[in-house]
Amino acid sequence: MIALLTRDIRLAMRAGGGFGLGLSFFLIVVVLVPFGVGPQSALLSKIAPGILWLGALLACLLSLDRIFALDWEDGSLDLLATSPLPMEGIVSVKALAHWLTTGLPLVLVAPVLGVLLNLPEAGFLWLTLSLALGTPALSVIGTFGAALTVGLKRGGLLLSLLVLPLYVPTLIFGAEMARRGAEGFDITTPLLLLAGITCGTIALLPFASAAVLRVNLR
């Protein structure tokens, strides 16, 4: 399993693996927002937590179809399926690799981009924490979506359509936590709910993703 993890990460880091694309996308979204809504710093600092969450979510979405697509094309997914590893384990490792190569970098650059959007000082810690807590859920949910559409040609658009509604609760609690943190309110409730969603999806969703993948590999 660890070998699989390191292999996935290495593949993603290599040129053409898509590593960095998500980050660049995140950067561009954040840079474009002031062009869309105007440069007033009061407005920007008010919407900064929401924009940063949305940007991270979209950047995450962008790289989802790579989770299984390459392995599907060269047949190594079939090999993995016949290996002694349980399918649930494979799916979890894939989600973890996706988080390490996409989610974690997003979490790390989010505070830097927060400066661009004039994020209030109190918000930096909570924004980073909320993203760190929420992005694993995004990766796990996204892995489920990627498993659903793995065999399809032009599955990318369908993948977004399937995954985005599933992202709603995570986005709501994550952005709410970041916003409350930025405005100096109590963040306990959204923090607990966000953590609950992340733990719940990590614990349960791999079973659904594995079932889906088995159907697709049939």
Partner: peptide
């Protein structure tokens, strides 16, 4: 989940 999240939000 969304139903409750939206209520909260």
């Amino acid at each position: 989940l969304s139903r409750y999240a939206v209520n909260f939000w």
